[in-house]
Simulated scan of single mutants.
Amino acid sequence: MIKNAMELQLEIEVIGILEKVLALPEEERERWLAGQSLKANTEARVRSLINAASDTGEFLEIPVKLSMR
């Protein structure tokens, strides 16, 4: 849960970076992140979300097939 304006600003920044990173091919992400000169807490949060996204595997990428029976 976001507690204050500073945390909110961090999360907004992190989401913007995360969108850019996830749009890159996986093999380019590390190099791109290393070239961004991010603050330690920002980079740590981005990396934790990248790891969480990769832990889901294909769970969110495979569409659910619904049966209307």
Score class of each variant (00 low, 15 high):
residue 64 V to Y: 00
residue 54 S to W: 01
residue 48 S to R: 07
residue 68 M to T: 15
residue 40 A to R: 12
residue 51 N to H: 06
residue 65 K to D: 11
residue 38 L to C: 04
residue 7 E to H: 00
residue 20 K to W: 04
residue 53 A to S: 14
residue 13 E to W: 00
residue 13 E to I: 08
residue 44 A to F: 01
residue 7 E to S: 06
residue 11 E to Y: 09
residue 52 A to H: 00
residue 14 V to C: 02
residue 20 K to Y: 10
residue 48 S to P: 07
residue 56 T to F: 10
residue 48 S to N: 07
residue 48 S to A: 13
residue 6 M to T: 15
residue 26 E to V: 11
residue 22 L to D: 05
residue 21 V to I: 13
residue 2 I to V: 09
residue 51 N to T: 02
residue 56 T to K: 11
residue 6 M to Y: 14
residue 64 V to T: 10
residue 35 G to P: 03
residue 57 G to H: 03
residue 2 I to M: 06
residue 21 V to N: 04
residue 21 V to Q: 08
residue 53 A to N: 09
residue 59 F to L: 10
residue 21 V to Y: 04
residue 53 A to V: 04
residue 31 R to I: 15
residue 13 E to L: 08
residue 18 L to P: 03
residue 52 A to L: 07
residue 13 E to D: 13
residue 53 A to I: 07
residue 68 M to D: 15
residue 15 I to H: 09
residue 58 E to L: 14
residue 49 L to F: 05
residue 67 S to G: 11
residue 41 N to L: 12
residue 3 K to F: 04
residue 26 E to A: 11
residue 39 K to V: 01
residue 24 L to F: 03
residue 65 K to M: 05
residue 57 G to L: 05
residue 29 R to Q: 13
residue 45 R to S: 12
residue 47 R to I: 02
residue 7 E to V: 06
residue 32 W to E: 08
residue 5 A to L: 08
residue 49 L to E: 10
residue 40 A to N: 07
residue 24 L to G: 01
residue 65 K to Q: 10
residue 33 L to M: 10
residue 43 E to Y: 00
residue 64 V to Q: 03
residue 31 R to T: 15
residue 65 K to V: 03
residue 14 V to A: 02
residue 41 N to T: 14
residue 44 A to W: 01
residue 64 V to I: 09
residue 20 K to M: 15
residue 32 W to D: 03
